[in-house]
Computed example of a mutant assay.
Amino acid sequence: MSQVVLCGYYGYGNAGDEALLATLLEQLPPHVSPVVLSGNPAATAARYGVATCDRHHWPKVLRTLQQSQAFIWGGGSLIQDVTSWRSPLYYLGLMTLAQRFGCRTIAWAQGIGPVRSPLYRWWTRAVLRRCLAVTVRDSGSAALLRQWGIPHQQGADPVWLLSARPVEPPQEKRAIAVCLRPHRYLTGDRWQLLKTALRRWQEETGVLLWLLPFQSQQDLPLAEYLHKTLLPERTKVITCEDPRQLKGILATAAGAIAMRLHALIMAASVGCRCFALSYDPKVSYLMADTGMAGVELGALPPDPTALIQQWQETFSAPIPDYQPYLQSAAIHKAVLNLL
């Protein structure tokens, strides 16, 4: 058995990053023994049954790297300096250490950029050139790596292939899942517009809405506040931390209105019609790559009626054929056989 360190934004209750970890663990070759760097090692070990290491305990992290044969940047937008300069410093530093210790390294299912700092751009190019393999999950990242001259493969996000765990009892198939997150774009008039449109849609059609927080610390207060605004008898807050169960819940929904990338991917992969509210380039890339219906959050129509009409059209249209994206996502699994 070879020991492989898995590094990502794991153990922080973000369902999207947990979905990436769950998918990666499902796809690892049988001869690999993973150790997950986690912000909550006990919770990660209990949920997935794997060895873990506290990502902030540097003596343990260094010993783990020295004892390992491979290192995987495990998916997501790890290398970007828009939200924080500390994040790329941490991940680039770990990849550099792993390479110095002789680990085979893979950048797996990455969303690269935006990288504004010249130092981080140089550092990212340097570590990626030393990787055994590099895969990206969207056309924007692929274009950036082509510009940098970095060999890579592009495939759909691996969470398209995450297994779903059935929920008991089965949920109502008529519901629309709503997955919102706090963001600077979702303030003032835009927030009021969304609330008004959702409530009016319920009043006019009787639609049942499930509010699904994908990161409880951020999303749950928003979902609970929205629940008070909508029709209580036609609205339900559903909390779940296991990404496989979340996917099982979405499999029983009729559709999804979501800001979070992996809420959209999970829903689409189980046959839901989806409407994206894009707050980030990664969501816009998904819309562009798949033709998924949606709107940029910063460009919402001013009239709730126009938004309701878009939802009605989306959720009455035929279910899109997403099979090509399920096939494309297998590219990320294939490179793991290099381990």
Rank of each mutant, 00 (worst) to 15 (best):
75 G>M: 06
254 A>L: 02
261 L>V: 03
3 Q>W: 14
255 G>L: 04
296 E>Y: 05
27 Q>W: 13
210 W>L: 06
12 Y>G: 06
248 G>C: 06
251 A>Q: 15
190 R>T: 14
307 L>S: 07
324 P>N: 07
105 T>C: 15
304 P>Q: 01
240 C>E: 15
52 T>V: 10
243 P>E: 12
55 R>P: 13
270 V>Y: 08
233 E>L: 04
107 A>W: 00
9 Y>G: 12
60 K>D: 14
120 Y>L: 11
172 E>L: 10
10 Y>A: 06
146 R>Q: 13
39 G>M: 00
128 L>E: 08
55 R>E: 05
193 L>H: 01
327 Q>D: 14
236 K>Y: 01
238 I>T: 03
337 N>R: 05
38 S>N: 09
127 V>K: 00
156 A>R: 08
171 Q>R: 12
251 A>P: 15
17 D>C: 10
221 P>V: 05
226 L>S: 02
170 P>Y: 07
309 Q>T: 14
96 T>R: 15
4 V>W: 14
318 P>L: 06
202 Q>T: 06
300 L>S: 10
105 T>S: 15
333 K>A: 03
121 R>E: 03
64 T>K: 01
134 V>F: 08
295 V>T: 15
313 E>R: 06
196 T>P: 04
153 Q>F: 00
326 L>V: 03
283 V>T: 09
291 G>L: 11
201 W>D: 13
265 I>T: 06
88 P>K: 12
140 G>R: 11
13 G>V: 10
278 S>L: 04
118 P>A: 09
9 Y>D: 14
281 P>N: 10
97 L>Y: 05
216 S>H: 07
228 K>G: 02
71 F>H: 10
107 A>P: 03
245 Q>W: 03
114 P>G: 06
87 S>L: 05
187 T>S: 10
58 W>R: 02
96 T>H: 11
188 G>S: 02
20 L>C: 10
50 V>M: 10
143 A>H: 00
214 F>Y: 13
261 L>W: 01
299 A>P: 08
8 G>M: 13
35 V>L: 12
156 A>Y: 02
24 L>W: 08
278 S>Y: 13
75 G>T: 01
91 Y>V: 12
293 A>C: 13
239 T>M: 14
197 A>G: 01
303 D>I: 02
107 A>M: 06
60 K>G: 09
47 R>S: 09
110 Q>S: 03
278 S>N: 08
262 H>F: 15
167 V>P: 00
107 A>Y: 02
286 L>Y: 13
180 L>W: 07
6 L>W: 14
315 F>L: 07
78 L>G: 01
210 W>T: 02
212 L>R: 04
262 H>W: 12
316 S>K: 11
232 P>Q: 07
38 S>R: 06
119 L>S: 08
